[in-house]
C-alpha cells in the first residue's frame, strides 16, 4: 500500500510517548493566563492528574476539595452558576462513578459550563488494579443528555481538546489515562469537536478506535497491510456527539468494522458505533475491548496484552472477520 493511504496529519511512524495528563496540566497553566475565569478543582489527586501545575501558578483559583468527589462536582456547578469556567479533575472511576448522580443533576441537566477532565481511565492504570481502572466511564457519561464525551488519542490532540472545550460552553467529559501515549499526529492535525478523524483510508475493513487504542489500531493496519489487507483507521475521539457521517461512510466502503477501546465493550465506543450502524448502515462488527469484566493489577501497557487489546488482536479479529465473509 502506498503512503498516500494515510492522511497528511498522521505520523508515518509512532512519535514520542508522552503523558497526556501532563499535557492537560501544562495546557491549563497556559490557558490560565488569558482566561481569568478558569478555576480548577481536584479531589486529592492533584499530582496524578497534573492539576497541581495550575495550582502552583494560580493558587487563588485552585481548589483542593479533599476526598469529596460529589462535593467537588456540585461545587464546580456552583462556580459555573456564578459565571466561572470550572475544570474538575480526579481519577475517571471517581469522577464518573462515585459522583455520577451529582454530575447528572447538578451539571448535565442544567447544562452548566463544567469541564470534567478525568485521568487514569482504563486498564493502563496498571498496578493499582481493578478498583481504580474505570472501564465504564464512557458509558456512564455518554448516557447523560447535554454531556459531550471526548477521548484524546495523543499529546497533540489532548492539547487541542483542552483548548477547544475551554471555548465551548456547556458540560463535557474528557477521558485521559495514566500511561504514556505514543504521538500519532503531526502539527497539521486540527481537532474538531464532533468530527472523527480518518487516519488511514482503506477499503477492506474499518477500524474505529479511541484513546490508547488508536495507536494500536494504526499498528494493526500495518500488520494487515503485510497480509494484503487494506484497512481504514478512524480516531473516534469525540464519542458524543458521535460523527454518524464518517462512521457510515467508512462502513459503506469497507463492509466490515472493528471497534477498539480500553473500556467495557458494553456501552462504550463499541456500543456507540453499533448503535449508529444498526440504525444507518447495518454492518458486520466486532468489538475489541474489555469483555464485560473487571481489570487486574499489572504493568499498564502489559495489561493491554493480557486482555487482548493489542494491534495483533485487532488484526486477527479483522482477518477472522474477512475470512468468514
Amino acid at each position: 500500500m502506498s503512503k498516500s493511504a494515510y492522511s497528511d496529519y498522521v505520523l508515518e511512524e509512532p512519535g514520542e510517548s508522552i503523558y497526556i495528563r501532563e499535557v492537560y496540566g501544562k495546557t491549563l497553566v497556559d490557558l490560565g493566563k488569558s482566561y481569568s475565569d478558569i478555576v480548577v478543582l481536584d479531589a486529592d489527586l492533584t499530582v496524578s492528574t497534573k492539576t497541581n501545575l495550575f495550582g502552583k501558578e494560580y493558587p487563588e483559583r485552585f481548589f483542593t476539595m479533599g476526598v469529596s468527589e460529589q462535593d467537588m462536582m456540585a461545587t464546580a456547578a456552583g462556580f459555573a452558576l456564578a459565571g466561572k469556567r470550572p475544570f474538575a479533575s480526579t481519577f475517571a472511576i471517581f469522577a464518573t462513578g462515585r459522583a455520577w448522580e451529582h454530575v447528572r443533576q447538578s451539571i448535565a441537566f442544567p447544562k452548566l459550563n463544567v469541564k470534567i477532565v478525568a485521568t487514569h481511565a482504563g486498564v493502563t492504570v496498571g498496578e493499582d488494579g481493578a478498583t481504580h481502572q474505570a472501564l465504564e466511564d464512557i458509558c456512564l457519561m455518554r448516557v447523560l443528555p447535554n454531556m459531550r464525551v471526548i477521548v484524546p488519542a495523543d499529546a497533540i490532540e489532548t492539547e487541542q481538546v483542552i483548548r477547544t472545550i475551554t471555548d465551548n460552553d456547556g458540560p463535557v467529559y474528557v477521558r485521559l489515562a495514566r500511561a504514556k501515549f505514543p504521538t500519532i499526529y503531526n502539527s497539521k492535525y486540527k481537532f474538531e469537536l464532533g468530527k472523527a478523524s480518518i487516519l488511514r483510508h482503506g477499503s477492506d475493513v474499518g477500524i474505529f478506535a479511541a484513546g490508547i487504542m488508536v495507536s494500536e489500531a494504526l499498528q494493526a493496519a500495518k500488520l494487515l497491510e503485510e497480509q494484503g489487507i487494506d484497512a481504514s483507521v478512524v480516531n473516534l475521539s469525540t464519542i458524543k456527539p458521535i460523527d454518524v457521517e464518517t462512521i457510515v461512510s467508512v462502513a459503506e466502503k469497507t463492509k466490515a468494522v472493528i471497534t477498539a477501546e480500553d473500556h467495557n465493550i458494553i456501552g462504550g465506543l463499541g456500543g456507540a458505533v453499533s448503535e449508529v450502524l444498526s440504525e444507518h448502515c447495518p454492518t458486520r462488527l466486532k468489538r475489541i475491548g474489555m469483555k464485560d469484566r473487571f481489570g487486574t493489577s499489572g504493568n499498564g501497557m502489559k495489561l493491554l496484552e493480557y486482555f487482548g487489546l493489542k494491534a495483533n488482536n485487532i488484526a486477527e479479529a479483522a482477518i477472522e472477520m474477512l475470512n468468514s465473509k
Binding site: 462536582m73 464546580a76 456547578a77 456552583g78 462556580f79 452558576l81 459565571g83 470550572p86
Partner: peptide
C-alpha cells in the same frame, strides 16, 4: 444544594 452554594460563595 449546599455544594453548589459553596461554589457560588467561593466565586
Amino acid at each position: 444544594g449546599l455544594s453548589a452554594s459553596n461554589g457560588i460563595a467561593l466565586a
